[in-house]
Computed example of a mutant assay.
Amino acid sequence: MRKLVYLVASTVDGFVAGPDGADPTGPDGFWPVPQDYLAHLVTEYPETLPGAARTALRTTAPGTHFDTVLEGRRSYETGLRAGVTNAFPHLRHLVFSRTLTTSPDPDVELVATDPVATARQLKLQDGKDLWLVGGGSLAGALYPEIDELVVKLAPLTLGTGIPLFSGTVPFDPTLWELTDHTALRSGALFLTYRRSSA
Results as ranks from 00 to 15, higher is better:
M1S: 14
R2N: 04
L7G: 10
A9G: 14
A9N: 15
S10W: 13
S10Q: 13
V12H: 13
V12D: 14
V12W: 04
D13V: 08
G14D: 04
V16P: 03
V16D: 01
G18A: 08
P19C: 05
P24R: 05
T25S: 13
G26Q: 07
D28S: 02
D28R: 04
G29F: 00
G29E: 01
F30P: 06
V33Q: 12
V33I: 15
P34K: 11
Q35N: 13
Y37F: 12
A39D: 15
H40Q: 15
V42M: 15
V42I: 15
T43Q: 14
P46H: 12
T48H: 10
L49M: 05
P50N: 11
A52E: 13
R54D: 10
A56T: 05
L57C: 05
R58F: 08
T59F: 11
T60Q: 07
T60P: 10
A61C: 13
P62W: 11
G63Q: 10
T64H: 11
T64L: 09
H65Y: 14
H65S: 14
H65E: 14
F66V: 06
F66M: 07
D67V: 05
T68L: 09
E71A: 12
L80C: 00
A82G: 07
V84R: 01
V84H: 02
N86L: 09
N86D: 11
H90G: 04
L91N: 02
L94Y: 07
V95R: 02
F96W: 04
R98C: 04
R98M: 05
T99E: 02
L100Q: 02
S103D: 12
S103V: 03
S103Q: 11
P104Q: 08
D105S: 10
D107V: 04
D107Q: 02
V108A: 06
L110I: 06
A112K: 08
D114M: 14
P115M: 09
V116G: 09
A117K: 03
A119T: 07
A119I: 05
R120Y: 01
Q121H: 09
L122F: 06
K123G: 03
L124N: 12
L124I: 12
Q125T: 08
D126G: 12
D126A: 07
K128L: 00
D129R: 01
D129S: 02
D129Y: 02
L130W: 00
L130R: 00
L132Y: 00
G135V: 00
L138T: 05
L138K: 00
A139L: 08
G140Y: 05
G140W: 02
A141R: 10
A141I: 11
L142F: 06
L142M: 03
Y143T: 08
Y143K: 03
Y143R: 08
P144H: 00
E145C: 06
E145S: 04
D147F: 01
E148T: 04
E148A: 08
E148D: 08
V150H: 12
V150T: 13
K152V: 09
K152I: 11
A154L: 07
P155V: 07
L156T: 12
L156M: 13
T157N: 12
L158E: 13
T160V: 04
T160K: 06
L164I: 06
L164S: 00
F165P: 06
S166P: 12
S166N: 12
G167Q: 03
F171Q: 12
F171W: 14
W176R: 03
E177Y: 15
T179H: 10
D180T: 12
A183M: 13
A183S: 13
A188W: 15
A188K: 15
Y193V: 15
R194S: 11
